[in-house]
């Protein structure tokens, strides 16, 4: 009986999550401080105190200040990706001609490691904010295009036939059928895109900037300040999680039918 009860408690989602987290932190603490050189990955208490110190300090080497350019550049690139990638993905999905003529390039660029373009971007834009925003945009626009495109292409023949039978054509077809049917894919595109935008901003700042979270990551790395480095990584993780959550909310608000249909949640 007692063991049965223990098993039940363990099966509770939160208990399991918290328990694994506690075990993870304790093991990390022991391994990171006693077994490995702390320079390797540091350990939780050191990282926590570095995090606390950096969180309240100001200036170039802190958590708050450098977050501003990173977020700005992430959202500038992401915004451009939506403005350009979303319509382009829809057009590629709808128009056969555009698909045939442009899709090979989109696909080629989609599979290319796009970070390889950074030296070229430096030649175009020099070093500084425009180059960073462009890198961010360039990394994040493709997931937007490709997901939207796939979404349009995924609309089943029977849905399109039905639209035809009920004389839903032109702009109405777009508004009542194509756009809502594609919406869950657009949400997936936004999620991948905003993640790529953050990667783009951080990587670009590591190479092209003297500010931002990307820059201080390299700086802390250069000085072997592992605990501080880890604190920045954790902050980026938190930012990523929050952004994802935001997109999720958007999805649940506007594509609720898909969420419930799949029995998700």
């Amino acid at each position: 009986m007692a063991s049965n009860r223990a098993l039940q408690i363990l099966q509770n989602k939160w208990v399991a999550t918290i328990l694994t987290f506690v075990i993870f932190v304790v093991v990390w603490q022991i391994v990171g401080s006693y077994i490995l050189n702390p320079l390797f990955i540091s350990y939780p208490t050191a990282i926590a105190s570095a995090f606390a110190r950096l969180a309240v300090s100001t200036g170039q080497y802190s958590l708050i200040g450098p977050t501003v350019p990173t977020l700005l550049e992430t959202f500038e690139g992401f915004g451009l990706s939506i403005l350009i990638g979303l319509p382009l993905g829809l057009l590629l999905g709808i128009s056969r001609t555009l698909d045939i003529s442009l899709n090979p390039y989109v696909n080629a660029l989609y599979v290319t490691p796009r970070i390889a373009m950074i030296p070229l971007i430096i030649i175009w834009f020099g070093i500084g904010e425009p180059a960073i925003v462009f890198t961010t945009f360039f990394l994040s626009v493709f997931p937007m295009i490709v997901n939207t495109y796939v979404g349009v292409r995924d609309i089943s023949k029977s849905m399109l036939d039905t639209a035809e039978v009920f004389s839903i054509r032109g702009l109405r077809r777009f508004r009542y059928v194509i756009l809502p049917a594609t919406f869950p894919f657009i949400i997936a595109g936004l999620r991948l895109s905003i993640g790529s935008a953050l990667v783009g901003a951080v990587v670009a700042q590591m190479i092209l900037s003297l500010s931002g979270l990307g820059y201080i990551l390299t700086a802390f790395g250069d000085f072997f300040q592992t605990a501080q480095l880890m604190a920045v990584i954790i902050e980026l993780m938190i930012i990523g999680v929050i952004m994802n959550y935001g997109i999720d909310l958007l999805g649940k608000r506007f594509a609720d039918w898909k969420v419930t249909e799949r029995g998700y949640r």
Partner: peptide, 19 residues
Amino acid sequence: GPGSNRGMVFQTFNLFPWM
């Protein structure tokens, strides 16, 4: 072609799930 002088009921229902 299609027209509203004919209505159709489908073997597979074909309702729009987002509506």
